[in-house]
């Protein structure tokens, strides 16, 4: 497996103001941590990192200060309004050491249950796995064409790949096919009803809750 290299620069400035300036100049603030060594604050060129993200690779060589370190892209923070990348976390790893990470679960095929009138619910969109960095899969693909009505696919039924261990409970549901439940229309009485006021004081003559004595 070829490991891509990403160039980074060490940065000394920190804080939101400095990070904003960095982002305005076309860079992304990042951090490298792990293996009980000191954290290193970095800055990346955003175009380089975007190109790297498109390759869907997780394991990289991080080049800074005339040295290279193997690192895993641990987390990418986005601005949810502009979709720009705010910050990146890298974790130091050894190539012969197992890592924990989340990979997406993709389902394919039309389930038998859907043909019989059910609907498919894909609950677990990503799963946490343990594996060696060299065998990190891009995604886990599962064929669900044999899934009948009222049946579920569990983590234990995911394809077993050599060197990969699924970390969630084996009984966790990945996808299920179930009957469509009709939305019960609210009655007119219910639509006109006012919400119950829980702090309402009982009027004189009405029976309220007995007061608690201190």
């Amino acid at each position: 497996m070829e490991i891509l290299e990403l160039k980074a620069e060490k940065r000394t400035t920190k804080g939101s103001k400095a990070a904003r300036k960095l982002r305005d100049s076309g860079q992304i603030p990042a951090i490298l941590y792990g293996h009980k060594e000191d954290n290193v604050m970095l800055s990346l060129k955003d175009t380089d990192f975007m190109r790297l993200l498109q390759t869907r690779t997780r394991l990289i060589w991080l080049a800074f200060d005339n040295k290279k370190e193997s690192a895993l892209i641990k987390d990418v923070q986005h601005d949810n309004l502009s979709d720009k990348i705010d910050h990146v976390d890298f974790s130091r790893i050894d190539l012969d050491e197992k890592v924990h990470l989340r990979v997406s679960v993709e389902v394919y095929g039309e389930p038998v249950g859907v043909k019989d009138g059910g609907i498919l619910t894909h609950t677990l969109k990503s799963v946490e796995i343990e594996c060696l960095p060299a065998v990190i899969p891009e995604k886990i693909k599962v064929n669900i064409s044999s899934l009948g009505l009222g049946k579920s696919l569990h983590v234990r039924e995911l394809p077993q790949v050599e060197g990969i261990r699924y970390l969630p409970d084996p009984e966790t549901v990945v996808a299920s096919v179930h009957q469509i439940s009709d939305v019960i229309a609210a009655s007119e009485e219910e639509l006109l009803a006012e919400p119950e006021v829980i702090t309402k004081k009982p009027k004189e003559g009405e029976e309220g809750e007995p007061e608690k004595k201190a």
Partner: peptide, 11 residues
């Protein structure tokens, strides 16, 4: 569907 709370602290 009834789109209002069932119980509230203040009306």
């Amino acid at each position: 569907m009834r789109l209002m709370p069932k119980r509230v602290k203040f009306r």
